[in-house]
Simulated scan of single mutants.
Amino acid sequence: MARFSPLNWPVVRQLTTPDRFGRGEAVTSRQTRDLKPRTATADRVVQSVCPYCAVGCGQLVYVKDDKVIDIEGDPDSPISRGRLCPKGSASEQLVNAPGRQTQIKYRAPYSTEWQSLSRDKAIDMIAERFIESRRRWWQDTDEHGRPLRRTMGIASLGGATLDNEENYLIKKLFTAAGAIQIENQARI
């Protein structure tokens, strides 16, 4: 540690430098001057959109060695102008959380254990159940013979972590399948 000297006092530096009001370099400690931003070591910066709500705040994703090291608000975003809510600020945990599930898990009815499934098997199971529910609960006409062409066995509740394009495609899919209960958490 350097030897203490009254010449290093901020008030002395303030009086002996052009920073007379003590708003800059004169009152900055050596420790503060030596600090480096945690994003300085990033290999690249990628622009993204926060995945949480439908606002669409801009994010800067800092990547080092193909791993996300930090996420900050994008000051060039016309929506958020560099600001993020607490959830958006913590969105780095979406990819780096140690408890994040990276496999598809399935628990059979009445089972107490989860089992891993392949992606193809899970998609096939979902498609079979979707088609069966649509077929079983299909209503072609009402009691007066008026056309309905709908199913009451399928509903959709979308999440705000999906972007606008994904929510648009989900809405189109469920509408084409005849579902009428289609809602999104971001709108509620």
Rank of each mutant, 00 (worst) to 15 (best):
Pro78Asn: 14
Pro78Val: 08
Pro78Asp: 14
Ser80Trp: 10
Ser80Pro: 10
Arg81Ile: 07
Arg81Thr: 10
Gly82Val: 07
Gly82Gln: 12
Leu84Lys: 12
Leu84Ala: 15
Leu84Gln: 14
Cys85Leu: 14
Cys85Met: 09
Cys85Tyr: 14
Cys85Gly: 12
Pro86Gln: 11
Pro86Thr: 12
Pro86Val: 13
Lys87Phe: 15
Lys87Gln: 15
Gly88Leu: 09
Gly88Cys: 13
Ser89Met: 13
Ser89Lys: 14
Ser89Thr: 13
Ser91Cys: 12
Glu92Arg: 11
Glu92Cys: 08
Gln93Val: 06
Leu94Asp: 13
Leu94Glu: 10
Leu94Ser: 11
Asn96Gly: 08
Ala97Pro: 03
Ala97Trp: 09
Ala97Gly: 11
Ala97Arg: 09
Pro98Val: 02
Pro98Tyr: 04
Gly99Phe: 07
Gly99His: 04
Gly99Arg: 09
Arg100Pro: 13
Thr102Tyr: 02
Thr102Met: 02
Ile104His: 02
Ile104Val: 12
Ile104Asn: 01
Ile104Glu: 05
Lys105Thr: 00
Tyr106Ile: 03
Arg107Cys: 10
Arg107Ser: 02
Arg107Phe: 01
Ala108Arg: 05
Ala108Ser: 08
Ala108Asn: 02
Pro109Ile: 04
Tyr110Met: 07
Trp114Ala: 05
Gln115Tyr: 02
Gln115Pro: 05
Gln115Asp: 00
Ser116Val: 14
Ser116Asp: 10
Leu117His: 02
Leu117Arg: 03
Ser118Tyr: 00
Ser118Phe: 00
Arg119Asp: 00
Asp120Ser: 10
Ala122Phe: 04
Ala122Met: 03
Ala122Cys: 01
Ile123Asn: 01
Ile123Pro: 01
Ile123Gly: 00
Asp124Phe: 00
Met125Leu: 07
Met125Thr: 06
Met125Val: 06
Ile126Asn: 00
Ile126Gly: 01
Glu128Lys: 05
Glu128Thr: 05
Arg129Met: 01
Phe130Pro: 00
Glu132Met: 05
Ser133Met: 07
Arg134Lys: 11
Arg134Glu: 01
Arg134Thr: 14
Arg135Gln: 07
Arg135Ser: 10
Arg136Thr: 08
Arg136Glu: 07
Trp137Tyr: 12
Gln139Phe: 02
Gln139Pro: 02
Gln139Val: 01
Asp140Phe: 04
Thr141Cys: 09
Asp142Thr: 06
Asp142Phe: 08
Glu143Ile: 08
Glu143Val: 06
His144Ile: 00
His144Met: 03
Pro147Gly: 06
Pro147His: 13
Leu148Ala: 08
Arg149Gln: 11
Arg150Ile: 13
Arg150Met: 12
Thr151Pro: 14
Thr151Glu: 10
Met152Glu: 14
Met152Leu: 14
Met152Ala: 15
Gly153Trp: 05
Ile154Gly: 11
Ala155Lys: 09
Ala155Trp: 10
Ala155Thr: 06
Ser156Trp: 15
Ser156Phe: 15
Leu157Gln: 15
Gly158Ala: 10
Gly159Ser: 13
Gly159Val: 09
Gly159Asp: 11
Gly159Leu: 05
Gly159Cys: 09
Gly159Lys: 10
Ala160Arg: 06
Thr161His: 10
Thr161Ile: 11
Thr161Met: 07
Thr161Trp: 03
